[in-house]
Design a protein around this nucleic acid. Sequence first.
RNA 1: GCCGGGAUGGCGGAAUGGUAGACGCAGUGGACUCAAAAUCCACCGAGGGCAACCUCAUGGGAGUUCAAGUCUCCCUCCCGGCACCA
Length: 832
Amino acid sequence: MGYDFQAIEAKWQKVWEERKSFEVETEPDKKKFYCLEMFPYPSGALHMGHVRNYSMGDMLARFLRKKGMNVLYPMGFDAFGMPAENAAIKYKTKPHDWTWRNIEHETNQSKRMGYSYDWRRRVETCNPNYYRWNQWIFLQMYKKGLVYRKHAPVNWCETCGTVLANEQVVNGACWRCEKPVVKKSLEQWFIKITDYAQELLDNIDTHLTGWPERVRIMQRNWIGRSEGARLSFRAEELDYTIEAFTTRFDTVYGITFIALAPEHELVSAMIAKLPKEEAARLSDFVAQCAAQSSIERSDAGAEKRGFATPFTGTHPVTGKPIPIWIANYILMDYGTGAIMGVPAHDQRDFDFCRKYGIPVIPVIQPAEGAALDGTTMTAAFEEDGVSCNSGQFDGLPTQDAIRKMINWGEEKGYCSREVNFRLRDWLISRQRYWGTPIPFVHCPSCGVVPVSEDQLPVLLPEDVQVVDVGRSPLLDMPEWLETTCPVCGGKARREAETMDTFFCSSWYFDRYCSPGFDKGPFDAKDTDYWMPVDQYIGGIEHACLHLIYARFFTMFLSDIGLLKPEVREPFTNLLTQGMVIKDGAKMSKSLGNVVDPTEIVEKYGADTVRLFILFASPPQNDLDWSEQGVEGAHRFLNRVWRFVEENLDSLKQTGGEFVPMSKLSDPAQRDFKRKIHGTIQSVTRDIDEEKQFNTAIARLMELTNALYSFRPADEIGYALRREAVEVLLNCLSPFSPHIAEELWQMLGNETLLSKTSWPILDKDALAADSVVIVVQVNGKVRAKLSMSAGIDEARLKERVMSDPQVHEKIAGREIVRVIAVPDKLVNIVVKG
RNA sequence: GCCGGGAUGGCGGAAUGGUAGACGCAGUGGACUCAAAAUCCACCGAGGGCAACCUCAUGGGAGUUCAAGUCUCCCUCCCGGCACCA
């Protein structure tokens, strides 16, 4: 009859759907497991990366169901975003229509793979029943003071026609289109994610122990905590107090200049105060700095340029006047946008001072070697040493000096302790159409005011033609734009900007718990049961994007009581899968090395594709696509099929109880029984603990090989063979569920294999009867002796030392020592 | 520059400090066949030997250990993240 995978896969997909095999409910008395994958953007079709991601998740979900868990395993679509607008222009359609068509197509693709999602829970972020809760959550954040508008230099992507959050700028370029990003001064919406910086950092150590070390380090770096102090310089002529942050208060006596970022607010006051000609030169300088791209600005090797102002600030400790400069290497968005310049101990300051002839005063001397001289040094001394030129602190080692001087500074009021983070507030607004409308209106008399909660959702018009990427069509829809003010009832204009789509993806996993709920974003009775996610699977590229935003959301939702207090983190365990590579490069349209999953599934079947993709590489590694490898996986499934088909009669005749190890006397049968249970043990461990799916599959291949070589001679032999086939199919079914289900049925089983418990391990069947003892001489393998298992150390030594073969290898040399590891090895150390 | 991760056959990859190379891919030889496909059997790190076996081998070098792919130190190369963050 042959392995007709097309018919089999269609058949079982239908059965599972009709029997609602994978639908789950909140059942507090059952042990739950929440298995989640990063939901896709519906760009048209699922690619191999998705297939890899979801094949892992589905395998785990199916495995855990068999282990008796109540498994929540949902799927949805991250459906708002730029590509829909671009596609709408290109194909002369509407983002709404394009997106929904793709959602339906990709859902069907997913079903064709046999993934066991509870499809009733599908979430689409572009659905008003979802994004209304985006708007609602945004208003809750506003109420808690976490939402604000700020006029600031922001990252602007010309190609996408929108601003970007810090996390979305990768090497100075847009994360999506990879075009350079420029700074633009705009008034934008921000969320105070920095209020949570400390908890985001602390929880990495306390809560994220189930995450890859790599991701934890990346997040720690991204949050970037540094401890130091804030100090101020009074600039009397300008009637202004300049604040600066430093991590090296111990170098305070080495300050020789103050530098401000060109965007610093004091700069315009200076321009106003300066004589016309000099004011013009300063404006010019500031304009030149602004013209630099963010890539140039952030290049450490770039030339440092400065402008000497005639103004000074008062040194907080010595009271001396310190000249104020404007410098292009000072960043406005870190610290205060002003620094204390200590050229002797900071390389950047040093470079700057040498260029402009500013004095260099060492305040730390190396513990050993020649003393530093400010006039002759060629580089800043940034290591630890001993303080000098620092009054009462002279002679202190650097670490002591840092501690003591900051205490002293605080006591005397020279400084105040401060912690700074590299993490910036989240710029949430986008100048785009296809997104969640920000639920605010602009009223000429009341200002920017929130839409009242009972007016949600602010619907996004769906019947919209996008013609130009440069301008949101919402701006040209007066019927949508014009509204009334929720406060005064007067004429007002809607906020036409939409939310960053990362807002949508920061809580979708909560929504899966109660997808139909309409009294809030989700029902606490469901999230209290299901959250947090037990296993999350997705790409490493979200390490400092989605995976930080979602953590912040969870903390916030927990703080306002929507999630229970103990849920502070959304994802207990994280698995980051590698990319799918072909011909040495990531599959991409531009390289033309894309393999379409649909075609491969048609040719080999979903079971083969799933098996290959999990077998070819461990989950975290990149996976090299190889059609020959796919054929190998297909061959294996064929082998399993053929075995059952060819031996069906004898397999069916021996149903019932399996023979326990104690009833087996034939060595071949005992070995085979051991192989069966050894397979259960290692497959279970590989999936559950090691997350090494490739080796789990290798074990199943070994069992299949053993099945082919085992020759049953009696009834017990046939019963063992039946046991082996059942174990094989059961263990195979999370990987290749359709073929396993079909063969299971062919054996005469009436229950669904998908609903059948994982095989029970018989520990008695694991113990070996005989073992091969490796005999080493001076650590080199010299002989292998077979003996029965469980011999103690003394008897083992005795047996090995009396063996003639071993004698020959020692050849009369003097025995210094004998090390014996029972059931394993004996190492004889000899001299000469 | 700083912080991570890695380097094992022709390839993907296995190896609680205890037989290096499981499993698969590719390859070689054979069986079946008129022939091919499919399938099955054998071989498959390098060198030496008729053989039993021996020597070398996990990027390079040292060290710890009875024993190191695995632990420690140094070096080389690759990959990733951060980077004028005060």
